[in-house]
Simulated assay, not measured.
Amino acid sequence: MSDGNVSADQLRLFIERIERLEEEKKGIADDVKDVYAEAKANGYDTKTMRSIVRLRKMEKNARDEMDALLETYRNALGIS
Protein backbone atom coordinates (compact mmCIF):
# COMPACT_ATOMS: atom_id res chain seq x y z
CA MET A 1 0.00 0.00 0.00
CA SER A 2 3.00 2.31 0.37
CA ASP A 3 3.27 2.70 -3.40
CA GLY A 4 -0.35 3.74 -3.77
CA ASN A 5 -1.73 0.33 -4.66
CA VAL A 6 -4.98 -0.62 -2.99
CA SER A 7 -5.92 -4.20 -2.34
CA ALA A 8 -9.54 -4.37 -3.48
CA ASP A 9 -10.18 -7.52 -1.43
CA GLN A 10 -8.79 -6.04 1.76
CA LEU A 11 -10.67 -2.77 1.23
CA ARG A 12 -13.92 -4.67 0.58
CA LEU A 13 -13.43 -6.66 3.80
CA PHE A 14 -12.91 -3.47 5.80
CA ILE A 15 -16.04 -1.90 4.30
CA GLU A 16 -18.10 -5.01 4.98
CA ARG A 17 -16.92 -5.15 8.59
CA ILE A 18 -17.85 -1.51 9.07
CA GLU A 19 -21.28 -2.12 7.54
CA ARG A 20 -21.91 -5.08 9.85
CA LEU A 21 -20.84 -3.07 12.90
CA GLU A 22 -23.06 -0.14 11.86
CA GLU A 23 -26.00 -2.55 11.59
CA GLU A 24 -25.23 -4.00 15.03
CA LYS A 25 -24.99 -0.47 16.43
CA LYS A 26 -28.42 0.34 15.00
CA GLY A 27 -29.84 -2.81 16.57
CA ILE A 28 -28.40 -1.91 19.96
CA ALA A 29 -29.72 1.66 19.67
CA ASP A 30 -33.17 0.22 18.96
CA ASP A 31 -32.87 -2.03 22.03
CA VAL A 32 -31.93 0.95 24.22
CA LYS A 33 -34.92 2.87 22.85
CA ASP A 34 -37.17 -0.07 23.75
CA VAL A 35 -35.84 -0.12 27.33
CA TYR A 36 -36.55 3.60 27.73
CA ALA A 37 -40.06 3.06 26.33
CA GLU A 38 -40.64 0.25 28.82
CA ALA A 39 -39.38 2.39 31.68
CA LYS A 40 -41.68 5.23 30.59
CA ALA A 41 -44.63 2.82 30.46
CA ASN A 42 -43.83 1.93 34.07
CA GLY A 43 -43.97 5.60 35.13
CA TYR A 44 -40.29 6.54 35.07
CA ASP A 45 -39.10 9.86 33.70
CA THR A 46 -36.83 8.96 30.78
CA LYS A 47 -35.24 12.40 30.55
CA THR A 48 -34.01 12.01 34.12
CA MET A 49 -32.91 8.44 33.42
CA ARG A 50 -30.85 9.65 30.44
CA SER A 51 -29.21 12.24 32.70
CA ILE A 52 -28.35 9.55 35.24
CA VAL A 53 -26.86 7.31 32.55
CA ARG A 54 -24.76 10.25 31.30
CA LEU A 55 -23.60 11.04 34.85
CA ARG A 56 -22.65 7.43 35.53
CA LYS A 57 -20.40 7.46 32.45
CA MET A 58 -18.43 10.41 33.84
CA GLU A 59 -15.46 10.07 36.15
CA LYS A 60 -16.10 11.25 39.69
CA ASN A 61 -13.80 14.27 39.49
CA ALA A 62 -15.46 15.46 36.25
CA ARG A 63 -18.89 14.96 37.81
CA ASP A 64 -17.85 16.88 40.96
CA GLU A 65 -16.46 19.72 38.83
CA MET A 66 -19.68 19.90 36.81
CA ASP A 67 -21.79 19.90 40.00
CA ALA A 68 -19.70 22.72 41.50
CA LEU A 69 -19.97 24.81 38.35
CA LEU A 70 -23.71 24.19 38.12
CA GLU A 71 -24.10 25.26 41.76
CA THR A 72 -22.07 28.42 41.08
CA TYR A 73 -24.25 29.33 38.10
CA ARG A 74 -27.45 28.57 40.02
CA ASN A 75 -26.34 30.80 42.89
CA ALA A 76 -25.40 33.60 40.48
CA LEU A 77 -28.89 33.44 38.97
CA GLY A 78 -30.71 33.07 42.29
CA ILE A 79 -32.00 29.60 41.50
CA SER A 80 -32.28 27.50 44.64
Score class of each variant (00 low, 15 high):
27 G>F: 04
37 A>I: 02
46 T>G: 05
53 V>P: 02
61 N>S: 14
54 R>E: 12
71 E>W: 09
26 K>N: 05
76 A>T: 01
80 S>G: 04
47 K>E: 12
39 A>W: 07
49 M>F: 02
24 E>M: 06
47 K>D: 12
21 L>T: 13
57 K>D: 02
29 A>G: 03
22 E>G: 00
31 D>Q: 13
42 N>Y: 03
66 M>G: 09
7 S>K: 13
43 G>V: 02
31 D>A: 10
9 D>L: 10
68 A>E: 12
58 M>F: 02
52 I>S: 08
35 V>N: 07
35 V>E: 08
14 F>L: 15
49 M>I: 06
72 T>W: 07
51 S>G: 09
17 R>T: 05
30 D>I: 07
78 G>M: 08
67 D>P: 00
40 K>Y: 03
11 L>E: 09
53 V>C: 12
20 R>K: 12
46 T>L: 06
50 R>W: 01
72 T>Y: 08
41 A>T: 01
20 R>G: 00
45 D>H: 06
66 M>L: 13
41 A>R: 14
8 A>E: 10
71 E>M: 08
34 D>M: 11
28 I>W: 03
7 S>G: 05
8 A>W: 10
56 R>E: 09
7 S>Y: 05
15 I>P: 02
77 L>S: 14
14 F>A: 13
23 E>H: 14
68 A>T: 10
17 R>M: 06
2 S>Y: 09
48 T>K: 15
11 L>C: 06
20 R>I: 04
21 L>N: 14
74 R>K: 15
36 Y>A: 01
23 E>A: 14
67 D>Q: 14
54 R>I: 03
73 Y>F: 11
61 N>G: 05
50 R>N: 03
59 E>A: 10
66 M>H: 14
41 A>C: 01
6 V>C: 06
55 L>G: 12
8 A>S: 11
47 K>H: 10
37 A>T: 03
27 G>E: 08
67 D>G: 03
73 Y>V: 10
36 Y>D: 02
62 A>G: 01
13 L>P: 01
65 E>L: 11
74 R>E: 13
48 T>W: 10
45 D>M: 04
62 A>D: 07
36 Y>T: 01
78 G>A: 06
44 Y>L: 14
67 D>E: 14
28 I>V: 04
44 Y>V: 10
65 E>Y: 08
59 E>I: 05
79 I>E: 11
5 N>V: 01
32 V>L: 09
34 D>V: 04
19 E>D: 11
75 N>M: 15
39 A>F: 06
4 G>C: 05
4 G>M: 05
64 D>T: 08
59 E>Y: 09
26 K>S: 05
3 D>G: 09
8 A>K: 14
16 E>Y: 13
13 L>C: 07
26 K>Y: 03
17 R>F: 00
47 K>W: 10
71 E>R: 13
1 M>K: 10
55 L>A: 15
35 V>C: 01
34 D>R: 15
44 Y>A: 13
40 K>Q: 10
59 E>G: 08
2 S>H: 12
54 R>F: 06
27 G>V: 00
56 R>G: 00
25 K>A: 03
4 G>V: 04
64 D>A: 13
62 A>M: 07
26 K>D: 05
59 E>K: 15
23 E>N: 15
34 D>G: 09
1 M>P: 03
72 T>L: 06
49 M>R: 03
43 G>L: 00
33 K>G: 04
48 T>H: 12
58 M>I: 01
61 N>K: 15
5 N>C: 00
16 E>M: 15
7 S>E: 09
